[in-house]
């Protein structure tokens, strides 16, 4: 399933991440997933939320630099070898994974994973 992910520029200094989660919490936006990619100086916080327009509004209003991009959310069976199987199919289809991370959203028997890939249509097709 394709969903909209919000990426926020993060300066690597104390309390920056909390500032962002605080802006969202105050607006009543629910975080479904969060991931950080960083260098020593700066990073990118990637989030999935329940209300994308509201989240972008409050983040931009607070002076954040953001970008909104499509990512794929894939349900992976929460059993031994489940992720291995999915990654195997992706490799076989020659799909390149730019990054992936897990959500806090999911039930006992499935884990929901976020994928950023070079060929999103094919990923949807094979899984």
């Amino acid at each position: 399933m394709t969903v909209k992910q919000i990426s926020v520029f993060l300066e690597n200094r104390y309390g920056q991440l909390h500032e962002i989660t605080n802006i969202l919490a105050e607006a009543g936006v629910d975080l479904k997933a969060l991931n950080i990619a960083e260098t020593t100086d700066y990073g990118i916080v990637r989030i999935l939320v329940d209300d994308v327009p509201k989240a972008t509004d409050v983040l931009i209003g607070a002076g954040c630099v953001i970008s909104v991009n499509p990512v794929q959310v894939i349900a992976v069976p929460n059993k031994s070898g489940g992720l291995n199987e999915v990654l195997g199919k992706i490799a076989e289809a020659n799909i390149d994974i730019e990054y992936m991370y897990s959500t806090v959203d999911g039930k006992d028997d499935v884990a929901k994973l976020v994928f950023k890939v070079d060929k999103p249509e094919e990923l949807e097709k094979i899984l």
Binding site: S7, E38, G43, I44, V65, I66, N69, E98, K116
Partner: peptide, 9 residues
């Protein structure tokens, strides 16, 4: 800047 920012590190 918003124009320069991308999701790709």
């Amino acid at each position: 800047t918003p124009e320069k920012f991308t999701d790709n590190l």
